[in-house]
């Protein structure tokens, strides 16, 4: 595998406010990285550094061995940032053709529009598009240069279900082509589905980097749901149980020791029905982490 992004001990501050602290990471070609974190955790600042918009005050950052922002790097990058282009007097086709001119190996605009099911919008003015349509056009703008590395910042915000499906299908196709994708999203279910590795930023530091499975193993939370007539207090002191909720006969148990809790539940099984056991999703783990950090 080829390392395309290498960051070592990056620090970045806006004035006296330190946004990124001692950040070290490596990204290989062909990976899909889910970059997650609370608002203000430093995700956008990290993207800014990778795009060459800002420079780190300390540390080393290279893309394909070059400084960020130099033309040889930018020709290989496509970015879909928050906020879409909505200038007056311009059609979708106009802005795509102009962008394509900047890249040596750009896609033919009509072909790309067809692939993204945007042909109908080609002659529409940007100002006449809905928020979701604009987002799709911004995705097309990110792709038109045929980039090897894609930065996608909240890509599916405002897209309807059909558009989201087209988007994710395209991401899957890009992965098979070996493209590298770094994606931020507050839709953590999507990140969980698609990301090879997850980078969790907290207060400007990398709190976790690894696969979703590794994250699940690290935060071994299990949720058990069942119908019961027993009292909630029955479960309060079972091993590993961190929260008990019993509403209208439906029991929700959260446990940080799934095996221990399940063994302790065995005597109560005759009184428990429709049992469902599930491991925590990325969203659940994220909430626990954020709560844990702010507690």
């Amino acid at each position: 595998m080829t390392t395309i992004i290498q960051a070592q001990q990056l620090d970045f501050s806006y004035g006296s406010h330190q946004v990124l602290k001692n950040l070290t990471l490596m990204i290989q070609a062909g990976e899909i990285i889910g970059l997650i974190g609370e608002n203000g955790a430093g995700k956008t600042t990290l993207l800014n550094l990778l795009l060459g918009v800002n420079q780190p005050q300390h540390g080393q950052l290279t893309l394909w061995g070059h400084q960020p922002g130099v033309p040889v790097v930018q020709t290989q990058i496509g970015s879909m940032l928050q906020g879409d282009i909505a200038v007056q007097g311009i059609t979708v086709g106009d802005v795509l053709k102009l962008t394509a001119r900047h890249y040596p190996a750009a896609f033919a605009v009509p072909t790309l529009l067809a692939q993204l099911q945007l042909t109908d919008l080609a002659n529409k003015r940007l100002t006449a598009l809905s928020g979701g349509q604009l987002r799709r056009v911004t995705f097309a703008l990110a792709l038109v240069g045929n980039p090897n590395l894609l930065f996608l910042d909240e890509p599916t915000v405002g897209m309807d279900v059909t558009a989201q499906r087209t988007f994710w299908a395209r991401i899957a196709a890009l992965k098979t082509q070996g493209k590298t994708i770094i994606m931020t999203s507050h839709y953590l279910d999507d990140i969980q589905q698609v990301a090879d590795r997850i980078f969790l930023l907290r207060h400007g530091q990398l709190a976790f980097q690894g696969t979703f499975r590794q994250l699940q193993d690290q935060y071994r939370q299990v949720e058990i749901v069942a119908q019961t007539t027993l009292a909630a207090s029955t479960f309060n002191n079972l091993p590993g149980v961190t929260a008990v909720d019993l509403t209208a006969g439906t029991l929700h148990l959260s446990s940080e020791d799934g095996d221990g809790t399940l063994q302790a539940l065995v005597p109560y099984l005759p009184e428990l029905h429709q049992i469902v056991i599930r491991r925590e999703s990325l969203a659940d783990i994220f909430v626990h982490l954020v709560r844990g950090a702010s507690a």
């Binding site: 930018q74 940032l81 282009i85 900047h102 890249y103």
Partner: peptide, 17 residues
């Protein structure tokens, strides 16, 4: 001002040229 506000300047800044 509009080109700055409406994302065109930002977009072109990120192109190779």
């Amino acid at each position: 001002l509009h080109d700055r506000e409406r994302g065109l300047v930002r977009w072109l800044q990120l192109t190779p040229n």
